[in-house]
Amino acid sequence: MAAADRKPILISGAGVASLLLAQSLFRASIPFRIFEKDASIIFRAQGYRLRLSNEGLDAIEAALGPEGFQKFWDACGKTGGVGFTTIDALTADPFEDGIPTAKKAPDASAEASKILRETLASREGKVVGISRGDMRRIFLSGCEDFIDWGHQVTGYELTDSGVRAIFADGSRSIEGEMLVGGEGIYSRVAEQVSGGRLKVFDTGARGIHGQAPTTAFKGLGEGVWRAIDDSRPDGRVFIITNVRPGSMDDPSVDFGWTMGAQSGVIQPPNDDYTITGVTAANIARSITKDWHPV
């Protein structure tokens, strides 16, 4: 059937998976339409990094094609160094099989290569990563004319020959050949398909994502680092950061870090997990106040 005669594939949500699907459809000349509740690609900050496995890179390359993938690959960060190493947040001792070693390592990079237990490397022996926001922007390229911003899908209705998406204001989309629910764990499409059997449960765990000048991580050296604090009576807390080469001496460049913890350790005021700025920073400072300077 010619593309002009086909009903489009409807896609709910403009996350990384939905946009990569759109790229595949675009290259195959299959019509599609994306509906996204945000007002634009920059409406929401989505800057944390995603590590990409060989399988993930292969899938992205297959969807984008040679030229598109090269643009994506050039935007990715590639980290070598000691690979993936875990240290004790209080002492900077390396962890060996999950247990802190007796050996001190104030400059963790000096000992880290001796106790490597995990690898995150994919292509070229490097850890490959890219921020979620950059990934979305690259995957959106070329598909801008096929996305409707400010359209939150709250359900769907089947027709005699296809499906229509239902939006928050009660309006309907054009008729599509199928509807893909790509709007994440709170997908209203998935909820309707499952007949309400699909449930999302809050574990109570919270996290904080932030950025710091690259010089703050110079003592660690190049690599992917995880620092774990098991000393707290309310549960384990950790941070993970990716220290990339070529910019550790440039304070104008920021590296991202992510803090995670067991339920109850990170307690935002009023259990508001959307807080930003000073309030979030002060929570992170209070949790890490006794950590090793490195």
Results as ranks from 00 to 15, higher is better:
Ile9Val: 14
Ile11Gln: 00
Ser12Lys: 01
Gly15Trp: 03
Leu25Val: 01
Phe35Thr: 00
Ile41Lys: 10
Gln46Ser: 08
Tyr48Leu: 05
Leu50Arg: 13
Arg51Asn: 09
Arg51Val: 02
Glu67Thr: 14
Lys71Val: 12
Lys71Glu: 07
Lys71His: 03
Gly77Lys: 15
Gly80Trp: 07
Thr85Tyr: 10
Glu96Met: 13
Ala110Ile: 11
Ile115Asp: 03
Leu116Cys: 13
Arg123Glu: 04
Val127Lys: 07
Val128Gly: 02
Ile130Lys: 15
Asp134Gln: 15
Arg137Ala: 03
Leu140Ala: 12
Asp145Val: 06
Gln152Ser: 04
Tyr156Asp: 10
Ala165Glu: 10
Ser171Ile: 12
Ser171Glu: 06
Glu175Cys: 00
Gly176Ile: 02
Val180Trp: 05
Ser187Tyr: 00
Gly195Leu: 00
Gly195Asn: 04
Arg197Asn: 10
Leu198Ile: 08
Thr203Leu: 05
Pro213His: 05
Thr214Trp: 09
Gly219Asp: 02
Gly219Leu: 01
Gly221Met: 01
Arg226Thr: 09
Ala227Gly: 11
Val237His: 03
Ile239Asn: 01
Ile239Asp: 00
Ile239Glu: 02
Ile240Met: 09
Ile240Val: 15
Val243Cys: 15
Val243Met: 11
Asp249Asn: 04
Gly256Phe: 07
Asp271Ile: 12
Tyr273Lys: 06
Ala280Arg: 06
Ala281Lys: 10
Ala284Asn: 07
Trp291Gly: 11
His292Leu: 04
